[in-house]
Design a protein around this nucleic acid. Sequence first.
DNA 1: CATCTAAAG
DNA 2: CTTTTGATG
Lengths: 267, 267
Amino acid sequence: MIVVTSVNVNGIRAAAKKGFLEWLAATEAEVVCLQEVRSEPEQLPAELRDLPGWHAVWAPAASKGRAGVAVLSRKAPERTAIGFGSAEFDGSGRYAEIDLPGLTVASLYLPSGEVGTERQDEKERFMAEFLVHLVELRARAAKDGREVVVCGDWNIAHQPADLKNWKANQKNAGFLPEERAWLTRVLDEGGYVDVVRRLHPDQEGPYSWWSYRGRAFDNDSGWRIDLIIATGILAKKCVEAYVERSATHAERWSDHAPVTAVFDLNN
Amino acid sequence: MIVVTSVNVNGIRAAAKKGFLEWLAATEAEVVCLQEVRSEPEQLPAELRDLPGWHAVWAPAASKGRAGVAVLSRKAPERTAIGFGSAEFDGSGRYAEIDLPGLTVASLYLPSGEVGTERQDEKERFMAEFLVHLVELRARAAKDGREVVVCGDWNIAHQPADLKNWKANQKNAGFLPEERAWLTRVLDEGGYVDVVRRLHPDQEGPYSWWSYRGRAFDNDSGWRIDLIIATGILAKKCVEAYVERSATHAERWSDHAPVTAVFDLNN
DNA sequence: CATCTAAAG
DNA sequence: CTTTTGATG
């Protein structure tokens, strides 16, 4: 049994003051992938820099206070890597991966984009390069007899069921036709399975992000943009997959909720 | 009897959330001069934009979030003015004045400066221009048979008794020999009296600003840089002059405390 | 609406 | 240490 969780913390220093550490202490996950850490490791307070019981790989962004991902694991990784071999993006705090025995786990923070701006071009460049990486990653893993799980904030909702107000968002970054088509290619050409959707094929959501504006959280007017995808054999072993909306309910320590997949390796 | 108060609020929107409005409701001042308002009038929440019982003249800075002075008066002014006729500084949110019957009251926020930087040059240019204004202001007032009081954050401590640690600060902005000499000229050539010092000639302080850093406030390690100066006849009518350290003690809503002068016009 | 940053104080 | 901003989300 291996439990993997992904959560965009929207600033780990702010999140730690509001309940992230209590959530982490209570989780049963074996691996936790973080996005939007928004801190250099050196800027972290002691209780975050040295998380008792966890090994951490931090991938901060070159520009301070931006992006930043991490992978926390209870066991020491066999290998860690920052970036995916991209000249443009390896220093941008958007990708890190670790190898555990027979398994690669990656944390991804895809650029959020904004239609009509350079930020959308950047998102599309990232998408193009990253799809190549996903294909290669699976091929290498297959050769080595390992499985792969890629967790993160993809900043794209795949299907109408993945956001509350899909009709109004067809021209907005995060639900553009070309972004949705790209996610389809990630699954089909990449050979990965969206494990939450696989186990909950007919459900609206479950959403994992709600804007801080207005009453989005209270109305559950959210988006399912935090995805855990896994290679086929591993995906079939996924026995549970859910969004922990309640984790950020009592005191909201992020605008995203943790997404968790439970794999039964004896399955 | 007329009571005039000067206080640097260090951001009126933040101060209002922490007790400034309660202080204002309780004050017996007839005129309140504010510095470091740090807000355009349009950005002010309703309870600040329309202060019941007060007339206000707001002089915001051209660059948002910087400087900004105001003069609040219980009676409608006969005349209001922003700036002192300076091409460089009239738009910088550092000076406003109002006329009440027989009396001009001004709110000043002198640049703080920083040795070895352009900000110190700016402070010195301001000082040069402003001294001319003070001399002219008194001359005009004398001709019209009116008195003058100029309140504000001068960002200069005049004498060793005006700051806790004067020896260590002789090379720092705010206690440079040339700044101190300029304040002497303001009083001597300008023909004004520092009313707090006049009534408390032998006291250390009373300080009106304490850095937020360290334990400056608790140790009363402060500076007396918020001065009320008045023309001679009026200054002689000043029967009380004090710093309201306690106003920012319970919940500290600024790093400065209000300075008040009470004038007995029948004196 | 919230997290960061930078400059300013 | 605190308040602003401006960028980002």
